[in-house]
C-alpha cells in the first residue's frame, strides 16, 4: 500500500519573513496562509475581512 509523500517543512529553524519568498508560494495553500498570517500580523490588517 503506497503512502502519500507529504513533506511538510519540519525544520524548526525555518522562519517565515513578512516579505515571504517564491519557495513559500510554491508550497501552495499551506505556505501562502502561513505567510499571510505573519504578514497580516505585521500589517495589523486582515485581508480576509476585506472580502466579506
Amino acid at each position: 500500500m503506497s503512502k502519500i509523500k507529504q513533506k511538510q517543512n519540519t525544520n524548526p529553524a525555518y522562519k517565515i519573513t513578512v516579505d515571504g519568498s517564491l519557495g513559500l508560494l510554491a508550497v501552495g495553500d499551506l505556505g501562502f496562509r502561513a505567510w499571510r498570517e505573519i504578514k497580516n500580523k505585521a500589517d495589523k490588517k486582515n485581508m480576509i475581512d476585506e472580502e466579506e
Binding site: 516579505d19 515571504g20 519568498s21 517564491l22 508560494l25 495553500d29 501562502f32 496562509r33 472580502e51
Partner: peptide
C-alpha cells in the same frame, strides 16, 4: 478557498527579484 487568492499588490521584492 476564498482566502487563497493572492492580490497583485501583495507581491513583494522577495518575489520580484528572482
Amino acid at each position: 478557498l476564498r482566502d487563497l487568492r493572492m492580490r497583485p499588490y501583495e507581491v513583494t521584492q522577495a518575489h520580484i527579484l528572482p
